[in-house]
């Protein structure tokens, strides 16, 4: 086993252990109560409809609570489209 494979095995073991412990610490599925829910989830589930009026909580988070994130996402899309149109532009002969 050369040096590079050894480093790869070490890296794989570290990442695998990290993923395994993260999976073991996840909340139980479908078991909604006060103890195993983070505070932010609880706040959004309780107050989204009364604060924004939107029934769709995901859209309320994306466009209202976390508007800056959507602005960045739109900027990424705009940059991608500008780049593709720049690369495939029609040149005058």
């Amino acid at each position: 086993m050369n040096k590079r494979n050894f480093a790869a095995v070490i890296f794989f073991a570290i990442v695998g252990a990290f993923l395994l412990f993260t999976a073991l610490m996840m909340h139980p599925f479908g078991n909604f109560n006060e103890e195993n829910t983070p505070e932010m989830d609880e706040y959004i589930i309780d107050n989204t409809q009364n604060e924004t009026g939107a029934d769709n909580g995901v859209t309320a988070v994306v466009f209202d609570y976390r508007g800056f994130d959507t602005l960045g996402e739109a900027t990424v899309l705009f940059t991608a489209v500008a780049g593709v149109i720049l690369v495939f532009r029609r040149l005058k002969k």
Binding site: T52, G53, D55, D64
Partner: peptide, 11 residues
């Protein structure tokens, strides 16, 4: 739970 289209402000 209104499910009304005239909700949600600027969204």
């Amino acid at each position: 739970g209104l499910a009304n289209i005239n909700t949600a402000g600027v969204i």
